[in-house]
Design a protein around this nucleic acid. Structure first.
Lengths: 332, 332
DNA sequence: CTGAAAGCGCTTACAG
DNA sequence: CTGAAAGCGCTTACAG
């Protein structure tokens, strides 16, 4: 393994001290223009780059951000990661990916790992089972900013970036109300998930307050397959054009669409459908599915910019809510 | 920022030397059982964990793998990353994600970054424009194993893990031949992509060798939207049940399905469709789309195990080909 | 069985 | 404007 160029090597070749070379490279005002030029030229030539481990040992700045998510097979998190990666490149940070598998024990281990690696900051969507948030707060006090996103804890005083679940649910409900609909079938995710706990009551509230006569049936599905089964069951007493399906997530949407296709129904003629989604799955169908957007990409941008402020020393905690927008397809 | 526990702290509390503590912690045979016990207990108590930067500075082992892909909005790469992440956890490695945006310049920069970070190894799917592979080989000689996957260079002597494109194309062609079909519309990706250059000729060869009377039309689409347009055009002189669409990728499949839905056609009654895919998109439709599987997950497992062998000292290069299997849906 | 010492490659107060 | 020196936290030959 060829040795990488070091400060020492440059210093020797130029008959300077290591300190001077180090300073020249960081454009320290003490160093003469001439020396700087010499040093930089040689550094360029031999492709010098500081050993990040040595730098970190001194400065405690790893230039690495961790992104922790419950699952990697999720379109929303992908856009988030993609978005963060984009910004990180620009600022010279790397992104380390961790998956908690929705297991608080693994999550805790990951946190420990992040601490030992002295990452510069953590972006995390917590598991639906996470109860204790002390470990997260502890990291914050140790100088590792923690930005919660999407799945965030209830605790007030921490940095949270979330989609406006209530707003998204409201947009979807209002869109449904524009149609003359008697029956709404709402498919929601796991009861334990914080997003379910916001989206379900808000959706019901908006819908039923505006029109108490609507026959609203809600179910909880923990997988696409389950959502498909439940939709099929609901469709057993189907009446043409009298029925709207609402899906609170891509996962439930995938299941519902499978059931609708299985029954040979067409949207929007035979049945209406609307979802809350990041947008990938809605665009696979024709007509495209109308959805209230929760954009992982936008959330990533917001989270990253909040992170940079924390790194720069902003100490107060802040909750940032990304408003949702309605993207019209032709499915309703 | 609270100070992390160090060897020094343990040594002081126990009135031992740092060397002894270090050895005790790694179960060195020289150290007495009694001392080991004392040290380990205290280490446990104060949650000692070695500073990875200090360790790396000495040992040059970062325990980090880099994964470099052209794009992060790609289901295949997600499964690959997910698969690698799973194994990495077990072995105590972290995964750093890089996206080249299919730009060889960015790719080169990433490579440089990996070298400076002294990552333990690199998994990379190169860009379709990558011409020079010397930089990759150089890393290998510097002791950083490089495992190419999916998009691999033509150069012989390097570690490559790929799906068997020829095999997948063959499986799809054979499946089409089972039906009595006159007309096949094949949608392929960018001409520059290595996978296109294998899948297209093989598919044509198998199909036409078996049945020269088949009217095979092939097109290249660089996006879903383009694939949709091209499919719509092909469908303009559509005759019921006389037509099979073959899509070489998820991207083209998404476009083709959009066109088929737009025309109000049903699979397989009105039109047959078959693809090469990782499996996510085919399963969104009913009937599910028949596809020759190229599994990012399986590829990840193979790549990781090859990586561990390289780390362990295996120096010869090896090309591993993952065979494809046909997953039957009902779309053909 | 244990310890003193050198060194990994850098940064930065201190001195001149 | 430049340099000698200490130190970040660890590992490991060397000595006893």
């Amino acid at each position: 393994m060829r040795q990488n160029p070091t400060l020492k090597k440059i210093a020797e070749k130029l008959s300077l001290s290591i300190s001077t070379v180090s300073r020249a490279l960081k454009d320290h005002p003490d160093i003469s223009a001439e020396t700087k030029k010499k040093v930089n030229e040689l550094a360029e030539l031999i492709e010098y780059d500081p050993n990040p481990y040595a730098v970190n040992l001194r400065t405690h700045n790893s230039k690495e951000f961790a992104v922790v998510v419950p699952s990697l097979s999720n379109f929303f998190y992908h856009s988030f990661i993609s978005s963060i990666e984009e910004d990180a490149r620009i600022y010279g940070y790397s992104i380390i990916i961790y998956r908690s598998s929705n297991d608080p024990k693994i999550e805790l281990e990951i946190l420990k790992n992040c601490r030992h690696k002295r990452v510069s900051g953590i972006f995390i969507a917590i598991t639906s089972e996470t109860k204790e948030i002390e470990p997260f707060l502890k990291l914050d006090t140790q100088g590792i900013p923690v930005i919660f996103f999407d799945k965030v804890p209830a605790y007030e005083s921490c940095n949270k970036i979330c989609v406006n679940d209530a707003h998204a649910a409201t947009l979807a409900a209002l869109e449904i109300l524009k149609k003359d609909v008697k029956r709404v079938f709402g498919i929601f995710g796991d009861k334990n998930m914080s997003i379910t706990q916001v989206r379900l009551p808000k959706f019901s509230e908006v819908l039923l307050n505006a029109n108490p006569d609507i026959n609203l049936e809600t179910v909880h599905a923990t997988s696409s397959d389950e959502a498909e089964c439940m939709t099929l069951k609901a469709l057993s007493n189907y009446k043409k054009n009298d029925f709207v399906v609402f899906c609170m997530s891509d996962e439930t949407l995938a299941g519902a669409m499978k059931a609708i296709q299985r029954k040979g129904l067409k949207t929007p003629e035979d049945i209406g459908i609307i979802a809350i989604s990041d947008g990938m799955i809605p665009k696979l169908f024709y007509p495209e599915i109308t959805y209230a957007e929760t954009s992982g990409f936008k959330l990533g941008k917001l989270a990253f910019s909040r992170m940079m402020k924390c790194i720069a020393g902003s100490s107060f905690a802040q909750t940032i809510i990304d408003q949702s927008i309605l993207v019209k397809g032709g499915s309703l």
